[in-house]
Computed example of a mutant assay.
Amino acid sequence: MKFLITTPRGLEGTAANYIKEKIKDADVWITPMGYAGLVLVKTKENCEKQLKEIPEVERVIPVMFEVPAKLDEILSTAKNISKHINETETFSVETTRRGKHEFTSMDVNIKLGRKIEELTGADVNLTLPDKKVLVEIIGDKAYISVIEREKWKKYTPEKPDARSLLKKITIVQLPYWGDYKVCRKMGEKIGRAAQAFEIKELIISPKEKMDAYELMEFIRGVKKGQRSRYLIQKDAYPWDVRKIPVSVWDLYQVIRDKRRKNRTIIITDPLGDIVSNVKNKLKKDLKFSKEIIVFIGSREGIPRGLFDLADYVLDLTPHMTFATEQGIPAILILLWHLYESS
């Protein structure tokens, strides 16, 4: 029996050594055709369970059909594949192509999927199928498998969507000041974090007059950090991603703004209350507020004159002060878990 093993790049040899130790009759081919992160294993018996016990092994794909890497040969397996998919089940075809061929991965997905659909009467489900047909092409060979729904999955109906809360949150961030290079680097971290959580808006809010060039470098950093994260999101997510709005507004005018109705204002500061003392009321406000506005300091905290105008002043980590760039992830992850807690 053959297995296609995936590993982190650079750990193919380590995984192979452990496979040989664990399975004495294993015939192992490391980085077949020079493709990193892959190990082909041939054994006399089914040893899938033993392979999954090796931490360096990320994925174990039992090879059910092996054919030449030609489109008609791959399509010829449809009849045998269909024996493993019931009419009441959903399926998808996922092709990973390594090497040069006269067809694309999408050609395989569409044409093989259509044949399986005709033979089984099963429906295609690209999001969360009951069965997944894997076509792993390595050079002149195609290795095909039918696997059950995988245990580890990013997007499932059972998981709530964190964006339901995050899209209501506006972050008001004091800009970092000082050395130009440090301002820019800190801005990158802030921009990346804000974009990563897809919040409603990021407002950069000086609390007083500050050096224009220091602010300029901070904003340049925010733009760079936001763009780098946005490009990753575009490639990684199966949905459209937007760049969050970024604006500049005086800190005191943000908290004075009366146009924002049904809002909850949160200030993060070591002088504040611990979350466990206010969690029940805060959780209710998170659910019913149209907007949650969070003020985060930078080098210095939020001025105390704003405290009485806020709904909550929270000390996220009592007896500890975290770095400026940790403010956004810390408060947003905390609010999300509170929002979803029972």
Score class of each variant (00 low, 15 high):
residue 260 R to D: 13
residue 55 P to K: 04
residue 14 T to L: 15
residue 158 E to P: 06
residue 186 M to D: 07
residue 14 T to Y: 10
residue 250 D to I: 12
residue 230 Y to K: 11
residue 209 K to L: 10
residue 82 S to A: 14
residue 247 S to V: 07
residue 342 S to T: 12
residue 243 K to W: 01
residue 317 T to N: 10
residue 200 K to W: 03
residue 280 N to I: 11
residue 3 F to S: 00
residue 114 R to G: 09
residue 341 S to W: 09
residue 99 G to D: 02
residue 338 L to P: 06
residue 238 P to E: 05
residue 328 I to L: 02
residue 204 I to P: 01
residue 175 P to T: 08
residue 318 P to L: 04
residue 92 S to K: 11
residue 71 L to W: 09
residue 32 P to I: 07
residue 280 N to T: 11
residue 280 N to H: 07
residue 70 K to H: 09
residue 282 L to S: 02
residue 173 Q to V: 09
residue 224 K to S: 15
residue 6 T to W: 05
residue 256 R to L: 13
residue 32 P to V: 06
residue 111 K to Y: 02
residue 317 T to K: 11
residue 81 I to W: 03
residue 45 E to S: 12
residue 277 N to M: 09
residue 124 V to F: 02
residue 17 N to A: 14
residue 264 T to E: 03
residue 128 L to H: 11
residue 130 D to Q: 08
residue 311 D to N: 08
residue 35 Y to H: 13
residue 195 Q to P: 07
residue 236 A to P: 02
residue 221 G to C: 03
residue 31 T to F: 10
residue 189 K to M: 10
residue 111 K to I: 04
residue 6 T to M: 03
residue 256 R to D: 13
residue 13 G to S: 05
residue 105 S to A: 14
residue 99 G to E: 05
residue 273 D to T: 15
residue 217 E to K: 12
residue 242 R to T: 11
residue 226 Q to K: 04
residue 9 R to W: 09
residue 66 E to N: 03
residue 244 I to T: 00
residue 269 D to I: 14
residue 96 T to R: 15
residue 154 K to A: 12
residue 1 M to N: 09
residue 329 P to D: 04
residue 239 W to G: 09
residue 174 L to S: 12
residue 231 L to K: 13
residue 163 R to D: 08
residue 292 I to F: 00
residue 131 K to E: 06
residue 105 S to K: 11
residue 321 T to F: 01
residue 229 R to E: 11
residue 92 S to H: 05
residue 50 Q to M: 09
residue 13 G to H: 00
residue 207 K to Y: 15
residue 238 P to T: 05
residue 300 E to F: 13
residue 299 R to D: 03
residue 208 E to G: 14
residue 139 G to N: 06
